[in-house]
Design a protein around this nucleic acid. Sequence first.
DNA 1: CCATTCTGTGGGAACGCTCCCACAGAATGG
DNA 2: CCATTCTGTGGGAGCGTTCCCACAGAATGG
Lengths: 342, 342
Amino acid sequence: MKHQVTIIDIARQLNISKSTVSRALTGHPRVKEVTRRAVLDLAGELDYQRNMLAINLSSSQSRTIGIIVPEFVTSFFPIVIMGAQEVASESGYTVLICQSNETYEAEVANARVMLANRVDGVLVSLTRETKNFEHLAMFTRKAIPLVLFNRVCYDIDVPKVVVDDYEGAFKATEHLILSGKQRIAHLAGPPSLYISRKRLEGYKDALRKHGFPIIDELIISYDLNVERAKIYVTYLLDLPQPPDALFAINDPTALEALLIIKARGLSIPDEMAVVGFSNDYGSSLVEPGLTTIAQPTREIGRVATQLLLDQINTEASTWKSVTRVLKTELLIRGSSVQGLTR
Amino acid sequence: MKHQVTIIDIARQLNISKSTVSRALTGHPRVKEVTRRAVLDLAGELDYQRNMLAINLSSSQSRTIGIIVPEFVTSFFPIVIMGAQEVASESGYTVLICQSNETYEAEVANARVMLANRVDGVLVSLTRETKNFEHLAMFTRKAIPLVLFNRVCYDIDVPKVVVDDYEGAFKATEHLILSGKQRIAHLAGPPSLYISRKRLEGYKDALRKHGFPIIDELIISYDLNVERAKIYVTYLLDLPQPPDALFAINDPTALEALLIIKARGLSIPDEMAVVGFSNDYGSSLVEPGLTTIAQPTREIGRVATQLLLDQINTEASTWKSVTRVLKTELLIRGSSVQGLTR
DNA sequence: CCATTCTGTGGGAACGCTCCCACAGAATGG
DNA sequence: CCATTCTGTGGGAGCGTTCCCACAGAATGG
């Protein structure tokens, strides 16, 4: 291991104390200009890089925020992370990203990593399995700010950033109704997820508002494993009285459904319309384009991070658990309305 | 700020020294079993989390590897990162991810972040702008292992992980030739990128092998900004003698081209065939499906990380800069062959 | 002109851990 | 039975910073 240049090396070469070097480097006002220049020059010359490990230990904060997301495959979370990173780095924070792979165990393990690395705050989107929140409560107990986004829960009292899932689902369903659809199925997420329940509610209320019955066999809750989606879509299509429209919990599911329906030779949207949720990359690529509820993905990351930084910079006792609800937008494409393409 | 539990707290409560607590916690053999149990029990009870900040400083290593990627929008890099994370966490390493947003300045800034955080090694995929490698040479100079992947350069002597870009491009082009295409255009990347040059070479050599002329006006090099792709594709289609096939540097570009061609009402693949590179998410969604050169994306991340860990665990003097070349596979879909769908 | 404030600097504790050195007492062996 | 090794533990330096306290000498002011 090669010796890394430290402030002591600089101090020695300049025949001054490490305190002075530290002050010069951190921009402390009480350093003579000529001294500061000498330090800065030598630091540049020696390729000095401040050791964050030491700084962090000394200051008992890491200037790092942690992000735990369930997956990385769909474009949603990477884009959220981009937004988060933008805001974080503007404030001089780095970002530690962990994936929980949709398993509770990994989420708990990731939480430990965050704790061990003494992150200054954490952003979490839950796995589909998470039903116990002890590992998250621990953050609060240790006075580490936590913000939930997208996959939130109301079992712990922290700020949350979500979109209006209820309203989005309502709009999606109503759009199908207004397009003349009569039997609208819903491929829902697991009930453990708050967003699943909200979207399901929006779906049901839209039906009710327009006097449609809620038909249980047309509502399927599944675990978001896209492989499974195939089975359920096939099941729906094989029903004695199949649906004429499908509202899916998210775009990957809707996309999968769309492909199956096409493969069956059914015409979209006439025989079967499809609406998704998220406006993932890919939704504009399929033919026909997928009608979907667009969410401000990057913005979710930005807002959540801002909320987190706000907490980091204030006394724990003043934290209040606001829920920021962002707007969604119905994006109509060919999968629900004849004659539209992209 | 709430006081975090330290080994000293545990030591005090148990009336033993912090050395013993440290040993018990790290699994040192020379601790009486009953003492170890007492420590472990109390640690659990107090919610003790070891402070990596302190451990890292003390051991002068962070057990963290850094990854710098140019972007996060296409599915390629997130998947590479997934692979990297798998291997890293198996070995107890965490991963610090930075995005350079395709700008040289951000890449340099990210390199500094890595240095400041004393990462044990770095994985880098260059931006399209990077022409100076001083910031990377610094890693080598400080004996921090570096592995390049995907977007590599040969100006610095470090291990690299790539796919056989030349061969992939050759296969793609030859496939178009064998499909009966006569005027095959190539939408290439910036010449600053090694992969651009290799893929261009493969394209040219395939033409030469089959006795086709290399027509300069059919070869366009662009900056990978997908917005621009539109302009170039339009230009190609408006040529007095337009091409009857297009081989694009990557899938996002090919996808964009495909949509434009469709919008023009040209039949794919008959009037215009398209082949991409990467097999991104989305390539199987478009209609017709995009013929492409699939790369083992996740594997790239895994292999690169393994190479990095190998270096981390050996003396700097023994490092050798192997280049691991992974295999690509031609995935034929409807954009190049009539009658295929997915 | 001497008390007071300011400026620039040095010294050293602290952050929480690891790891080397010491050492007491038990176990071992010729 | 005493020298030697082993076992379990404590003490303390060191990792590279920051930051508080101290202090010398210069500047200020009544």
